[in-house]
Design a protein around this nucleic acid. Structure first.
Length: 467
RNA sequence: GCUCCCAUCGUCUAGAGGCCUAGGACGCGGCCCUCUCAAGGCUGAAACACGGGUUCGAAUCCCGUUGGGAGCGCCA
């Protein structure tokens, strides 16, 4: 049997972190088993579904590199098929019409709550035939679910879970306007799309029991379920906007790399021995839904950021330059011309070692793109004021005679210069750093001199001396 | 309230009865390296929620308690 998984978000908002992980797990499991991974947009709630949300989900999945197989299935487009399934059930006596008004149901629930009873539809129309006047009223179609016995699910993550059928009420299949509900649509679509494994959030566990009953009523074979725990915020409560349940695009804008996101999300609720850095190939090889933990995990931005630093260090220089170029232009309001682009490329090896996000990377790289004279930050100014300027003046003169301009030779020169003047290397290097970068923090300064080149280096040093 | 689920360092996790003096990672402290900042190396503090069983032996199995979570819509 070929595995078919699906990610089935409802387009009522962005692709949040929990959804992204669900998509990742479905994707990995399909790849692991050599199966297929489908995307279905559950847009049956016409009032809340929006095109921007659909776009955000698609963009988010693409950014994460979770490419689905085949065409996207839009659930609402299949409503006639769903309705047909409900009609079939009605004809077979496995479903029935319920003429309750919303007010009536609300009253029923309030009564149940007041008395401490379970809150469930009580099946009042299950066996009842409407009178002539009642038959003209709007109705919904409900499943005639089994009352006795129990429904057992062998969940890949949660294990065997049993619920008494008395706990499950008769769910609505068709609304009073004739449109199919989520419950009906999911079951019919999962069947028609030949989904074999449903991997989704824990919050759907109780739905799985109802859906299982519907599968049976329709004569379909239910898929295998795997309900993964939800992601919680730092305080242990369900992740909300307050915590960081942002759309994945927000994480992209924070300067995170998709591979860092994938690695982090994978390790949330799943582990493979002591492995922390896991490549995509290893993830596909190792991942199995049954190894996902049962407890909810808390989202930790700090760890995500640490992982991101690792992936930035590993990333290709040209790719990083491409990613930070627009950030430099926007954040520092600097045009990045060809000369700057070349410097960024040459300097990237030193730059990427010390950044945890692309934002940090862009900010730390901006000095390569800046024109003269460089603006200095406060700490940099202090260095110059505390004797740095005098040292720099001597450096400028001495450096004029320096012919070889490699990082190694420049360092040797600086050491010799320092010894001759009775200065420690730091006392030579720091003023240069300030002059060249405008700050007290930068990549190794002799590398920077190399990247900047002789003319620009000397010019920036003279600027600082004259400032 | 009812139903279901969960429980190892602050956090993510390893651990499927003896390999556990409980391992790794992030974070935190110290040291080293060092032209700054990082990165890296070494190192320290830090956990089996509690109570009963079962067993020669329990983080691992069972029961209870406590704590947390999810669901209970003509939303998905």
């Amino acid at each position: 049997m070929t595995v078919v998984t699906r990610f089935a978000p409802s387009p009522t908002g962005y692709l949040h972190i929990g959804g992204a992980r669900t998509a990742l797990f479905n994707y990995l499991y399909s790849k692991h088993t050599g199966g297929t991974f489908l995307l279905r947009i559950e847009d049956t709630d016409r009032a809340r579904s929006t095109q921007p949300a659909i776009d955000a989900i698609i963009d988010g999945l693409k950014w994460l590199g979770l490419n689905w197989d085949g065409d996207i299935v839009f659930q609402f487009a299949r409503a006639p098929r769903h309705r047909e399934a409900a009609e079939q059930l009605l004809a077979e006596g496995k479903a029935y019409r319920c003429y309750c008004t919303p007010e009536e149901l609300t009253a029923m629930r309030e009564e149940q709550k007041k008395n401490g009873w379970p809150m469930r539809y009580d099946g009042r129309w299950r066996e009842r035939k409407p009178s002539e006047s009642e038959a003209k009223l709007p109705f919904v179609v409900r499943l005639k679910a089994p009352i006795a016995g129990e429904t057992v699910l062998d969940d890949l993550v949660q294990g065997q879970v049993t619920v008494a059928n008395s706990q499950l009420d008769d769910m609505v299949l068709l609304r009073s306007d004739g449109t199919p509900t989520y419950m009906l649509s999911v079951v019919v679509d999962d069947h028609d799309m030949k989904i074999t494994h449903v991997i989704r959030g824990d919050d759907h566990l109780t739905n799985a029991f109802r859906q299982h009953q519907l599968f049976r009523a329709l004569g379909y074979t239910p898929p295998v379920y795997g309900h993964i725990p939800l992601i919680h915020g730092p305080d242990g409560a369900k992740l909300s906007k307050r915590h960081g349940a942002l759309g994945v695009e927000a994480y992209r804008d924070l300067g995170l790399l998709p591979e860092a996101m994938r690695n982090y999300l994978l390790r949330l609720g799943w582990g493979h021995g002591d492995d922390e850095i896991i490549s995509d190939a290893q993830a596909i090889e190792w991942f199995d839904v049954k190894d996902v933990g049962r407890g909810a995990a808390r989202f930790d931005m700090v760890k995500l950021t640490n992982l991101n630093g690792h992936y930035i260090r590993e990333a290709d220089d040209a790719r990083l330059v491409g990613l930070i170029k627009p950030l430099i232009e926007k954040r520092a309001n600097l045009p990045v011309d060809d000369a700057a682009h070349a410097r960024l490329t040459r300097g990237m090896a030193g730059l990427k070692q010390r950044a945890k996000t692309l934002i940090e990377l862009a900010d730390s790289a901006a000095f390569y793109a800046r024109g003269r004279p460089l603006a200095l930050d406060d700490k940099a100014k202090a260095i110059l004021a505390e004797g740095g300027k005098a040292v720099l003046a001597q450096i400028a003169t001495a450096l004029d005679a320096q012919s070889s301009w490699t990082a190694a030779d420049l360092e040797a020169w600086a050491k010799a210069f320092g010894e001759a003047k009775g200065l420690k290397l730091g006392q030579v290097a720091q003023p240069i750093r300030v002059a060249l970068s405008g700050s007290t923090v930068s990549p190794p300064i002799f590398d920077v001199m190399d990247v900047l080149g002789r003319a620009e280096t000397l010019a920036r040093i003279r600027d600082a001396v004259g400032a």
